[in-house]
Amino acid sequence: METALPTVLGMALATRTDRRPSPARLLWRSTIGKKAVMAVTGLIMLLYLVSHLLGNLKVFAGPDEMNGYAHWLRTVGEPFLGHEWFVWLARCVLLAAVGLHGVSAYQLSRRDLAARPVPYAARRRATARDSYATRTMRWGGVILALFLVWHILDLTTGTVNPRGRAGHPYENIVATFSTWYGNAIYVVAMLALGLHVRHGFWSAAQTLGVNRPRRERALKATANALALVLTAGFLSIPLAVMTGVVS
């Protein structure tokens, strides 16, 4: 029966703590906040992927176009920015996004797994809502992270690229997709990407509060379209190399 009684009776009581942590802290500490971090960083990466795809499709225009584009990227913003500044800036932003996305995902996943420690003995059939994409977010994310490491070593630094000539992305791309494992890794990763984007985009919309009953269908359709376009777009390149359209 011990109670913290207010000093003044009869008035509406302040029952909550008086000071809150700063917004950044509040965000990072709460599940919703951390999820919002994932949503925003995810959208940054998604935006990057769209532009990345548009750039990559230049491969169909031939080596000069592609290599020229790659060179131009390093000169963006000149003379206001120095050589390659823009690229490094973008890389920093992306690195931060990947880092925050990954750390948040890791921490949230640990929390989620701890919140449901005992599985049900009876397994039920998957419902319509519980799509494959939803269930594979965690492993899909891990696959994408691993792919990212290989992809950078392959086509950015050229370390593991069969050809590895700096400044000649067109040739490097063709070299990668001329190996069976290059194709295999890439295809698996792009399928994972499609699934990840499919649920991720919708999930981000929900997390950031964009979803409303009337928008639900449109958002899901957008998510599906984005996933399809990105997957098909990226897969068209190895396909083109394999079929000899690009060589």
Partner: peptide, 10 residues
């Protein structure tokens, strides 16, 4: 519930 949380209803 508000009173319970405030500790005035046990």
């Amino acid at each position: 519930s508000r009173q319970i949380a405030a500790g005035r209803v046990e």
